[in-house]
């Protein structure tokens, strides 16, 4: 019986930490930008003496935070918006779902808007649903919610992990597009969690209260807790459906190296999207979150450049089943 347990040393396992950093940065920016907006309005009004103590505190904090970078508060307008549609130093970037919804709602092609989705579109063609795992501000809350679900489970409360049909979200996408045509309005913005999060944070900070979207988002959190693990992302989210379709033939995908796999199935447990890395079954849904890479004790998971997942490679060569088969043969 060999007792070789090499420490996992692959650099890829740090990607998951990097991902959390990215998610947190995006989320913090969404909180910071409304405050910067408030600061800009205070400056534009030239009425520092008339501000309430709270407003003064906001103004002072934002001034000390931004003064190393810009001379005039006006220059802070370089970064505006949310992940739904934002402006970065003159470059406008929009969610492909927003563009698709607008095309259907207005039944016209407005190219200067459509082109703002070009960068996310190309990135999605290359990396699949990476937006869902790496940028989406709702993902941060959904993953924390999933940790909460694990605690509730430990405390003995029933947390359901039902499996539904993955194709529901394509129905949601199709029905949403049909309703957009019917109403002549982009309705996705109201049920798409990242759009809701960006908006509601702005409402709460700058306009002094949450809107209708916050209620909807709380319902999706409850749905995740009580019906299915990460259920909204997996089964309902129209953006996830669009990204899954676009990422069908993505180039960068996670692959199991069968020679160093020991069939421990930690990857399957850690995958919040309920995928099956152990049987090489990633499919369209994988959001390249790399949680399975970080969890793998033998560095069997890594990235590959291929437009298709490999077929099932059989049990891992370090596992019991493979050894049994070898001895039997």
């Amino acid at each position: 019986m060999e007792n070789v347990k090499p420490e996992p040393s692959s650099k890829l396992r740090h990607l998951n930490k990097l991902r959390w950093l990215t998610l947190a940065t995006v989320f913090l920016m969404l909180i910071l930008l409304p405050f910067i907006h408030l600061y800009q309005t205070y400056e534009a009004a030239h009425a520092y003496d008339l501000l309430t103590p709270t407003e003064k505190a906001i103004s002072d904090a934002m001034e000390s935070l931004t003064s190393p970078f810009v001379k005039e508060p006006e220059e802070l307008s370089a970064i505006k918006g949310t992940t739904w549609s934002g402006t970065l130093f003159g470059l406008k970037i929009s969610d492909p779902l927003a563009v698709l919804g607008q095309i259907f709602a207005s039944m016209s092609l407005y190219w200067s808007f459509i082109l703002t989705a070009l960068i996310p579109l190309l990135a999605t063609l290359l990396f699949g649903r990476f937006y869902c795992g790496w940028i989406c501000p709702a993902t941060l809350i959904y993953e924390l919610n999933d940790n909460l679900a694990a605690w509730l489970r430990k405390a003995g409360l029933p947390v359901s992990r039902r499996k539904l049909d993955r194709r529901i979200k394509y129905v949601v996408l199709g029905v949403g597009l049909a309703l957009s045509v019917y109403f002549g309005a982009v309705l996705f913005g109201s049920i798409y969690p990242p759009a809701i999060i960006g908006r509601e944070i702005y409402y709460a900070i700058a306009l002094g209260g949450f809107g209708a979207g916050a209620v909807f988002f709380l319902l999706t959190l409850l749905f995740d807790l009580m019906v299915s693990r990460r259920g909204f992302c997996r089964y309902v989210c129209p953006g996830g459906a669009l990204y899954s379709l676009l990422g069908r033939y993505r180039l960068f995908r996670i692959k199991r190296n069968v020679k160093s796999c020991n069939d421990c199935a930690k990857c399957n447990v850690v995958c919040q999207f309920g995928l099956d890395p152990l049987q090489d079954n990633f499919g369209m849904e994988c959001n390249n979150c790399t949680a399975c890479i970080a969890a793998c004790p033998t560095d069997a998971l890594g990235f590959t450049i291929n437009v298709q997942d490999s077929a099932y490679q059989g049990p891992g060569h370090l596992g019991h089943q493979y050894k049994k088969e070898q001895e039997g043969a």
Partner: peptide, 18 residues
């Protein structure tokens, strides 16, 4: 207007007069 607006909220964020 309703068919074109994607509800991103940037107009409000850029309004200096709130």
């Amino acid at each position: 207007f309703l068919s074109k607006c994607i509800r991103c909220g940037k107009c409000g964020e850029s309004c200096p007069n709130r």
